[in-house]
């Protein structure tokens, strides 16, 4: 019949179906993510002290300043604001705060937060059709690489506090070397209980070193599971990352030596793995859509992380994540699942 014609002059507005929406939007998704991460932040401050709070507040403050400035600029120029609420910037700020090592200088936290918000959220979003790289992970990786370079040539305290040169001397491949390296996680006394924790207990419950967001691996695990279920994160990435890390840790323990449980505690429950797996590796824009690709993403991420971790590369899990982010467009192209009608020949089933 005749061609569809433009319809603008009628009494009613016209539009395609559906005419109803679930009512759950991305600002709510971000806000709920932020609230859940606040529980982790609270636990981190309890374990690591006021320094952790300063890092978190500096990161949040920096992203809010960048967001406020950009928002004002965009409104002034008559451009549609990139973010219609501060929910997404708040999540970015919280992630930056929680993924910083407690020993890092506050200035580094502020710079990472700035790079995250300005370069890898605003600019990446502006110049590409979506964010291919996880903003916080990429910012931290870029800065850490730069500081590592600085440390090689300049005797910089800031670089040293981020780069941790003593990590280069650790031998995580042998049983003795591994167990010896774990001294840093034991001996802490838990307030109120007054109990001194072993390295394994420390890694599970009470870490005063490493990522702020990993201060209590168990809290991250519980909050992460709740968030993944409640907000429908890409759970296959979490499962395959943590599952693969666990298998590799147990396998390494059995093959190379070292208490397998301690290996699991170290390789899975440090913040750079468990916090990353739940709250960074599931960042939706930079991770694959097809379900099977998410498994491949998670397994590959775990293998890369494990290798970098065992060879003492500081920030290894974030480099691994950035590498996997780059592989995402390729992973989106493959392993598309068969839809309804393609799975059963002749309709059997």
């Amino acid at each position: 019949m005749s061609e569809k014609e433009d319809e603008t002059s009628g009494l009613y507005k016209v539009g395609d179906p559906p005419h109803i929406h679930i009512g759950f939007d991305k600002n709510q998704l971000m806000l709920k993510t932020f609230l859940l991460m606040s529980i982790i932040a609270y636990a981190s401050v309890m374990v690591m002290g006021i320094q952790a709070l300063f890092h978190i507040l500096i990161a949040l403050g920096t992203v809010l300043i960048v967001h406020g400035t950009m928002d004002s600029y965009q409104k002034w120029r008559g451009i549609k604001p990139t973010y219609d609420s501060p929910a997404s910037p708040l999540v970015a700020g919280m992630i930056v705060g929680l993924c910083m090592p407690i020993a890092a200088p506050y200035l580094v936290t502020a710079v990472v937060a700035f790079l995250t918000m300005f370069v890898f959220k605003y600019m990446q979003g502006k110049y590409f059709d979506h964010k291919y790289l996880n903003p916080a992970a990429t910012s931290k990786s870029v800065l850490f690489l730069a500081l590592a370079g600085v440390f090689r040539f300049v005797d910089s305290e800031i670089a040293a506090r981020v780069y941790h040169p003593h990590h280069q001397e650790l031998d995580l491949l042998s049983a003795e070397g591994f167990e010896g390296a774990m001294w840093i996680f034991r001996g802490e006394t838990v307030p109120l209980l007054g109990a001194e924790v072993s390295a394994t207990q420390g890694l599970f419950f009470w870490q005063t070193h490493g990522w702020i967001g990993g201060a209590s691996g168990v809290v991250v695990l519980i909050v992460g599971i709740v968030a993944a279920y409640w907000l429908r994160y890409k759970w296959r990435i979490i499962l395959s990352t943590l599952g693969t890390m666990t298998i590799l840790a147990v396998g390494t323990g059995l093959y190379l030596g070292g208490d397998p449980l301690l290996r699991v505690a170290f390789h899975v429950f440090t913040g750079s793995v468990i916090f990353m797996a739940f709250f960074m590796a599931t960042e939706p824009q930079s991770t694959p859509m097809p379900e099977n690709s998410q498994y491949i993403f998670g397994i590959s991420l775990a293998i890369l992380t494990f290798v970098l971790q065992i060879y003492n590369v500081v920030g290894g899990s974030l480099y691994a994540l950035v590498i996997m982010n780059m592989a995402t467009p390729l992973l989106d192209m493959i392993v598309i699942k068969s839809p309804y009608g393609h799975r059963e020949s002749k309709g059997g089933g």
Partner: peptide, 26 residues
């Protein structure tokens, strides 16, 4: 119209999670 204020896609995958015929709308 709840779709009047469309925002950029965040690739959350909700669309393919609920798709009853298992395709990838996004």
């Amino acid at each position: 119209d709840p779709y009047e204020e469309e925002k950029p896609c965040i690739r959350c995958g909700y669309c393919n999670t609920v798709c009853p015929v298992d395709i990838y709308p996004q």
